[in-house]
Design a protein around this nucleic acid. Structure first.
Length: 952
RNA sequence: GCGGGUAUGGUGAAAUUGGUAGACACGCCAGACUUAGGAUCUGGUGCCGCAAGGUGUGAAGGUUCGAGUCCUUUUACCCGCACCA
C-alpha cells in the first residue's frame, strides 16, 4: 500500500469538520489551555508559505496539549476592516464587504480571477482550529461590541487615587459634592478649578465640555499626523521614519478635532506589566522605549514683563544653576506672546520655515543647528537672573512641555546650540556648574562630578542634588518631581470608510453616545468611498446617516432638524479597534447580548500562548494590553494582562532566482559563465528551478513571452540560476503558494518542512528544493506500518533497541514542544524512523506511541496510521506517550580519550567503572602509549560517563 | 547615540550543567537496482593533504585539564527607539 497524501488528507479534514473534532467546550473537567494566533487580514493576494509558519507552530502546541489532557481553545478569525480593501474599492467600485468576503471564502472576482480564499487555503493545511468560533471584525454582530467598548471608555475616567478607571458617574458625584478640587485624575491640562456650586450652576453643555477633559476617550482639537495622500490621520505607530507605514506617503502635523484614547493614563501600568509576562526581551524593550519613562522634575520660569510662565520638564533639575538660556519648540504656544517687536520678523520667518519642513526633513537633518532669539527673558527661580528665551527646532513640540531649560555645560545639544550662537544677541557665556573641564565638550555623565557655582547645591552629586533641588523648588512653588512619558494619547478617528462607525451623534457640536441597546450602528452605504468635495470623510457621502432620538434609528440626512434628528459622526475607528479585544470574543463568539459572557471569560481567563509577528510590537500588542487593563478595571476582564506568553515567529524570506541576460541580446548565460559577458540580472519564477539551481528551460520558455525565443548559454546543457534572498513578494517572482505544496507533497509535508527549516523565531529563506527530505521521511514512516500488501503490524515484543529509539524520541519531542524547538523534533523523528527501519520494527508496542508522537506535527498521516492500528475515531485526544528512563539505561560508554585536550581515539568501557579503574585500562592501552611516546602524564582527568583527558 | 538580536560546511541547521563540533536534511560524488523516473537503496562528503597529520564555530585576547558555549575587547549584519531635554 502506497502513501497517498491527497486521499488521506482530504478524508481526515472532512472527518474533523463533520465531527467537530476541535470544537472547544466552555465547560470541562479538564484544565484549560488557550492558544491564539494573530488573526490575518484577508488580502486578495492570498497566503504564501510564510503566513502559516506561526499557525503551524501554534497548531502543534494545541494538538500536543489535547494529547496532554487539556481542554484547548484554538480559534481563528479575520481582522477584516482595513485600508487595502478600501483602496481596492476606490479603484474598482466594488463594495469592501464583497471583496473582503471573497478574500475569505473564495470565488471569482469581477475581473474573472479565481480567488482561493483564506479559509480554503487554511483548511488544506489541516489546522485544528475551532471554526465554530470564527470572528470577523467587519461583521456588525462583532463591531457592535467594539462600539460598546468605545462607549464604556467614554463613560469612564482614570482615578489616580484608586489607580484605575472608574465610571464617569463617580466623577460627577464628586463634582456635585466638592467640585474638582480633590479630584486626582488623568485629564487634559489647564482645567480651571470649580466648586460644587459652580458645577451645579453650569449648563448641561458646559458640564459636558468639562467631562470631555476627563473621559478615557475624548474629543479634542489636537495636533495630529495628517497624511494627505491617504486622506486620513495616522497614529504614531502607523508612521515609520516620518512617512506613512502604508504606502510611504508624507505626513504633516495638523490641528484637527479628533477622538483620542487616553492611553497615557495607563503608561505606568503598561510599563510595570511587562515584568510579569513571558515575552521576548526585544518586544518588551520596544514597548519600554515606546512608553519612554523618564524621571525628573517640572520647573516653572516666569517670563519678565509678561503674565506668563514657561514650564519645562528636565531629567537634570540638579543642574538648574547652569541654565544659560531657554529654548522653546517653534510651535510652542507662548512664542507669539513673548516675542519682542524687534525680534518679531525673525521669529515669524523661522516659525514659518520650520512649519514648511516635513517631519521627515526635520528628522533627517539633525546636524544643522538653527534657532532664533525671541528677545524675551525668563527669570531664574533662585538667582532671579534674566535668562534669554530662544526658539529652535531641536526642541520637539510633542515631548515634555515643548520647552527646555538649556544647560550647555551638561548637555551636548545645548552645548552645540550655545557655541553656534556664541557672541550673538541673547546668547550669554556658558555657565559651568561642574568641577570638570567643559572647554571641548559638555559633561553629560550623571556621576563623577561635584556641583559648584550652584548656591545651596554646591558640593552635592547628581542624586543628592536632585533630591535637594526638588525640595527647594517645592518650597518656593516653582516646581516639583515629575515622571514624564513619551507615550502620547492615541488618535482614534480615521477619515476612512471601511472601519467601525462611532456610536455617536452631535448636538450643538457636542458628542452624544447612542444607547447600547440600539447597537450596532451599521456602516452606511455610500456612492463613493472617497472624501467628499468639501473635505468631509467618506461617510459624508452617506445620505442616510442621521440619528433620530425618538425612533432611535438611523434616518435620512434630510430629516436633520437638530432638535430630534441629529448628524452622526463621520469618522470611523482605526484598524486596531477590532483587534484590541478579539481574543475575548472567541471565548463566547455567538453571544448577542454581551461581548462575552462573564462565566466564559472567567473560564478561559487569558491567552496562555500567543504566536504572531513582531511587527505588532508597539501597535496591536500595546493597544490590546491597554484595552484589557481598562476592561479589567471596569470588571469585564479577569486579568491584568491578556497574553501570558508571546512568541514571535520569524519571517520566511524568498529565495529569488536570477538569470543573466547578455546585454542588448536575447541570450541568457548560465550563472558560472556570466563573468565572460556583460550581463544584467533578471528575476524569474522561483518555481521553475530545481534543487540543484537548474532551470527547466522548456517551462521557462512557456512562462512569459520574453523567453519564448530566447537562447541559453548553458553549462553542458544545464542552465544554473543565481540566488538572492529577499522578502517574499510578487514583484520578485519568489512567492511560493502553500496550495501548490499541499497539492504536490501534502499538508503534512508542508507542516513538517516549515518546522524543519529552522528555529521558529528566526527569519529564514524558503527553498522548496529541500522539501524532499521530509517528504521522504513520511514515506519511510508509512512503510513501517504497511508494505505493498497492507498492514504489517505485529504484536510481538519489541527489542530493547526499539524501545530505546522510541523513548529517546518521546523525551526529545516532549522537551522540544515545551521549549518551542520544533525543528529539532522533526530531526528526532527522522532519526527514530531511520533506526526503526534498520531494526525492521513493525511492532505495535512501538508503532502505536510513535503515531501519537507524530500526530501534532503531521496529523493526517497520524490519523490514518491510528486507524490502521485498528482504532475507531480520531487520534486527537489520545494520551501522549510517557517517557520512561529505564529504556535509556546504558551499560557501556564510548569514551573519547584526549591528550592535552585533543581527542585521539575512543575506547568502549563499562559505565560502572571507577575513575581509578578507567585510568588503569586507558594507561595500559597501546594507543595511549603510542600517544605518550614514553612520557608520563602530569595529570589524568577522568569524568566517568563523559571524557578522559591526559595532560602533559 | 541608546537598547535588543544574530554570526558554525556549498545550503538550512544541530550541539543538556563547559566534555568526541557539524546531528538531521538539502546539494554534491561514487555505486546498486530498474518498468529509465524528479523513484528506491548503499557508501562517501568541514577545509588543507596521496597519506601521516594539520586545521577549524566572524576577529583578537583571557579563564580552564578541556571553550561554539564563560569573561574582556572588537567587526559585520538585522530589528526597535532616536535632537526624548
Amino acid at each position: 500500500m502506497k502513501y497517498h497524501h491527497e486521499k488521506i488528507e482530504a478524508k481526515w479534514q472532512q472527518y474533523w469538520a463533520e465531527n467537530q473534532t476541535f470544537a472547544a467546550s466552555n465547560h470541562s473537567e479538564k484544565p484549560k489551555y488557550y492558544v491564539l494566533d494573530m488573526f490575518p487580514y484577508p488580502s486578495g493576494a492570498g497566503l504564501h508559505v510564510g503566513h502559516p509558519l506561526g499557525y503551524i507552530a501554534s497548531d502543534i502546541v494545541a494538538r500536543y496539549k489535547r494529547h496532554q489532557g487539556f481542554n484547548v481553545l484554538h480559534p481563528q478569525g479575520y481582522d477584516s476592516f482595513g485600508l487595502p480593501a478600501e483602496q481596492y474599492a476606490i479603484q474598482t467600485g466594488q463594495h469592501p464587504a464583497d471583496t473582503t468576503r471573497m478574500n475569505i471564502e473564495g470565488g471569482v472576482d469581477k475581473s474573472g480571477n479565481t480567488i482561493q480564499g483564506y479559509r480554503n487555503q487554511l483548511d488544506r493545511i489541516g489546522f485544528s482550529f475551532d471554526w465554530s468560533r470564527e470572528v470577523r471584525t467587519s461583521n456588525p454582530d462583532y463591531y457592535k461590541h467594539t462600539q460598546w467598548i468605545f462607549i464604556q471608555l467614554f463613560e469612564s475616567w482614570y482615578n489616580k487615587n484608586s489607580d484605575k478607571a472608574e465610571s464617569i458617574c463617580t466623577l460627577i458625584q464628586e463634582f456635585d459634592k466638592n467640585g474638582n478640587a480633590n479630584v486626582n485624575a488623568v485629564c487634559d491640562d489647564n482645567i480651571s478649578p470649580f466648586s460644587s456650586e459652580d458645577w451645579k450652576s453650569f449648563s448641561s453643555e458646559e458640564q459636558q465640555k468639562i467631562l470631555l477633559h476627563y473621559r478615557l476617550t475624548y474629543l479634542a482639537e489636537t495636533e495630529v499626523n495628517w497624511c494627505a495622500a491617504l486622506g486620513t490621520v495616522l497614529a504614531n505607530d502607523e508612521i515609520v521614519n516620518g512617512v506613512s507605514e502604508r504606502g510611504g506617503h508624507p505626513v504633516v502635523r495638523k490641528k484637527m478635532t479628533q477622538w483620542s484614547m487616553r492611553i497615557s493614563a495607563y503608561a505606568e501600568r503598561l510599563l510595570q506589566g511587562l515584568n510579569e509576562i513571558d515575552w521576548s526581551e526585544s518586544i518588551k524593550e520596544s514597548q519600554r522605549n515606546w512608553i519612554g519613562k523618564s524621571v525628573g522634575a517640572m520647573v516653572s520660569f516666569n517670563v519678565n514683563n509678561h503674565d506668563a510662565k514657561i514650564d519645562v520638564f528636565t531629567t537634570r533639575p540638579d543642574t538648574i544653576f547652569g541654565v544659560t538660556f531657554m529654548t522653546l519648540a517653534p510651535e510652542h504656544e507662548l512664542v507669539t506672546q513673548i516675542t519682542t517687536p524687534e525680534q518679531k520678523a525673525a521669529v515669524e520667518a523661522y516659525v514659518e520655515a520650520t512649519a514648511k519642513r516635513s517631519e521627515r526633513e526635520r528628522m533627517a537633518d539633525v546636524k544643522t543647528i538653527s534657532g532664533v532669539f525671541t528677545g524675551a527673558y525668563a527669570e531664574h527661580p533662585f538667582t532671579k537672573e534674566p535668562i534669554p528665551v530662544w526658539i529652535g527646532d531641536y526642541v520637539l513640540a510633542g515631548y515634555g512641555t515643548g520647552a527646555v531649560m538649556a544647560v550647555p555645560c551638561g548637555d551636548e545639544r545645548d552645548y552645540a546650540f550655545a557655541n553656534f550662537f556664541k557672541g550673538t544677541n541673547g546668547m550669554p557665556a556658558i555657565k559651568n556648574i561642574f568641577n570638570q573641564d567643559i572647554s571641548e565638550a559638555a559633561y553629560g555623565e550623571k556621576g563623577g562630578f561635584e556641583l559648584v557655582n550652584s548656591d545651596f547645591l554646591n558640593g552635592l552629586d547628581y542624586k543628592s542634588g536632585t533630591k535637594k533641588i526638588i525640595e527647594e523648588l517645592e518650597k518656593i512653588g516653582a516646581g516639583n518631581a515629575k515622571v514624564n512619558y513619551r507615550l502620547r494619547d492615541a488618535v482614534f478617528s480615521r477619515q476612512r470608510y471601511w472601519g467601525e462607525p462611532f456610536p455617536v451623534y452631535y448636538v450643538n457640536g457636542l458628542p452624544q453616545m447612542i444607547d447600547k441597546k440600539h447597537l450596532p450602528i451599521v456602516l452606511p452605504e455610500v456612492e463613493k468611498y472617497l472624501p467628499t468635495e468639501d473635505g468631509q470623510p467618506p461617510l459624508g457621502n452617506a445620505t442616510v446617516w442621521a440619528w433620530d432620538t425618538e425612533s432611535n434609528a438611523v434616518v435620512s440626512n434630510d430629516l436633520i432638524d437638530n432638535t430630534k434628528v441629529f448628524p452622526l459622526e463621520l469618522n470611523t475607528m482605526p484598524g486596531w479597534a477590532g483587534s484590541s479585544w478579539y481574543w475575548m470574543r472567541y471565548m463566547d463568539a455567538h453571544n448577542t447580548e454581551e461581548f462575552a459572557n462573564e462565566e466564559a471569560i472567567k473560564y478561559w481567563e487569558s491567552v496562555d500562548l500567543y504566536i504572531g509577528g513582531s511587527e505588532h510590537a508597539t501597535g496591536h500588542l500595546l493597544y490590546s494590553r491597554f484595552w484589557n487593563k481598562f476592561l479589567k478595571d471596569r470588571g469585564y476582564a479577569p486579568t491584568e494582562e491578556p497574553f501570558k506568553k508571546l512568541i514571535n515567529q520569524g519571517m520566511i524570506l524568498g529565495m529569488s532566482a536570477i538569470v543573466y541576460r547578455v546585454s542588448g541580446t536575447n541570450k541568457y548565460v548560465s550563472k558560472n559563465l556570466k563573468s565572460e559577458y556583460e550581463t544584467e540580472e533578471i528575476r524569474i519564477d522561483v518555481n521553475l528551478v530545481n534543487a540543484s539551481d537548474e532551470i527547466d528551460l522548456d517551462k521557462l520558455r512557456n512562462w512569459i513571452p520574453e523567453f519564448k525565443e530566447a537562447e541559453f548559454i548553458t553549462e553542458s546543457g544545464k542552465y544554473f540560476v543565481g540566488r538572492e534572498i529577499e522578502k517574499m513578494s510578487k514583484r520578485w517572482y519568489n512567492v511560493v503558494n502553500p496550495d501548490d505544496i499541499c497539492e504536490e507533497y501534502g499538508a503534512d509535508t508542508l507542516r513538517l518542512y516549515e518546522m524543519f527549516l529552522g528555529p521558529l523565531e528566526q527569519s529564514k529563506p524558503w527553498n522548496t528544493a529541500g522539501i524532499t527530505g521530509v517528504a521522504g521521511f513520511l514515506k519511510k514512516l508509512w512503510r513501517l506500518y504497511f508494505d505493498d500488501n497492507g498492514s504489517v503490524i505485529v504484536n510481538d515484543e519489541p527489542t530493547a533497541e526499539m524501545y530505546k529509539s522510541l523513548h529517546k524520541t518521546i523525551k526529545k519531542v516532549t522537551e522540544d514542544i515545551e521549549n518551542f524547538s520544533f525543528n529539532t523534533s522533526v530531526s528526532q523523528f527522522m532519526i527514530c524512523v531511520n533506526e526503526l527501519q534498520q531494526l525492521k520494527c513493525n511492532h505495535r508496542a512501538i508503532l502505536e506511541p510513535l503515531a501519537i508522537l507524530v500526530s501534532p506535527y503531521a496529523p493526517h498521516i497520524a490519523e490514518e496510521l491510528w486507524s490502521a492500528l485498528g482504532y475507531e475515531g480520531s487520534i486527537a485526544t489520545v494520551a501522549f506517550p510517557k517517557f520512561e528512563a529505564k529504556y535509556l539505561v546504558e551499560s557501556e560508554k564510548e569514551y573519547p580519550v584526549s591528550f592535552n585536550g585533543k581527542m585521539r581515539f575512543t575506547i568502549k568501557l563499562p559505565l560502572d567503572l571507577t575513575a581509578a579503574q578507567i585510568e588503569e585500562i586507558v594507561m595500559a592501552d597501546e594507543r595511549t602509549q603510542a600517544q605518550l611516546q614514553g612520557r608520563t602524564p602530569n595529570k589524568v582527568i577522568i569524568v566517568p560517563g563523559k571524557i578522559i583527558n591526559l595532560v602533559g
